Computed example of a mutant assay.
Amino acid sequence: MLHSQSVLSDAHILIVDDQPDQLRLLIDVLRNAGCRISIAFDGSQAYQRALAISPDLILMDVRMPRMSGFAACRLLADTPETRAIPIIFLTAAGSLDERLEGLDIGGVDYISKPFEPAEVLARIRVHLGRATNKHGQEPAHTPVSESSGNNVIVRAAIRHLSARLNDPPTVEQLARLVGTNEKRLSRAFREDLGQTVFEYLRAERLRIAQRLLTTTSLSVANIAEEIGFSSAANFATAFRDRFGVTPSAYRDERQVQDVPPAQEPCLDRT
């Protein structure tokens, strides 16, 4: 028990919640356990605070104004300075799909509201212990420049687009998912990649189409559907504009290149 308590002693916990009564309860519980505490009231503030203070662990509500806990988690997971910080979601929203999404984007655990203080402390102890064993010490904080911030936003957006290539969100929806606005997201793509979001999405679809044409026997129509084109004709036009050949011609060319050269017959000279 002494060892478990020592893990909590002086641990720096960032609590993220927009409900004052929940914040007061968590503050009391964690202070009594010897923790140092910082507070944020939404996901955007949580992201900025995490960059500034490098907490040992984050207790994150999910549904908050301005930026949700999930959007903040995506940004934190895509930022080298914060990706190692354990994030425990603390929320009244307990559907299986939501829990799986939270774990998939980088959360390490869930605690359902209303919570038991003893359970909160126990789960924090477990994840602080694992983080200490894995990393040995706190990572040094490095200031994040504006260009680095753009890169974080772009990487988070790309991860989201890759997961829904055949049915992508609109730019407005994508901006919300990564915790920013449409104007900032568009600027980040232009400055970091030299492309608009739409240009990146089309180029990525066509890149994957090349691989599918080369490595699978899917029809051109099936590939068009797989990567999110509205029709095989639109896909063929976009592919020809980008690569100078139709998808079928590209596949035929690749197959010819991959055919091994014929070997001379081995004659028995005995």
Rank of each mutant, 00 (worst) to 15 (best):
S38I: 01
A40P: 05
A40V: 10
D42W: 04
D42P: 04
S44V: 05
S44M: 10
S44Q: 15
Q45G: 03
Q45F: 00
Q45V: 04
A46G: 11
A46L: 10
A46M: 09
R49S: 14
I53K: 10
I53Q: 14
I53L: 14
S54L: 01
P55W: 01
P55G: 08
L57Y: 03
L57E: 04
I58L: 13
I58D: 14
I58Q: 11
L59S: 06
L59V: 04
V62R: 12
V62Q: 11
V62G: 02
M64S: 10
M64C: 07
P65S: 10
R66E: 10
M67I: 00
M67V: 02
S68F: 01
S68V: 02
L75S: 06
L75N: 03
A77H: 03
D78P: 00
T79C: 11
P80T: 03
E81R: 03
E81I: 01
E81W: 00
T82A: 03
R83Y: 07
A84L: 03
I85Q: 04
I87M: 11
I88M: 10
F89V: 02
F89W: 03
F89R: 02
F89K: 05
F89N: 02
L90S: 06
T91A: 08
A92K: 08
A92L: 09
A93R: 12
G94F: 01
G94E: 08
S95H: 12
S95D: 15
L96Y: 04
D97A: 15
E98F: 01
E98W: 00
R99V: 15
R99I: 15
L100Y: 09
L100P: 02
E101N: 04
G102H: 07
G102S: 13
L103N: 09
L103M: 15
D104C: 02
G106W: 00
V108F: 02
V108G: 12
V108E: 13
D109L: 05
D109F: 04
D109Y: 09
Y110R: 08
I111A: 10
I111M: 12
S112W: 00
P114H: 12
P114L: 13
F115E: 08
F115K: 08
F115L: 14
P117A: 12
P117S: 13
E119H: 11
E119C: 04
E119W: 02
A122H: 11
R123T: 07
I124T: 14
I124M: 14
I124D: 08
R125I: 04
R125A: 15
R125K: 14
R125Y: 01
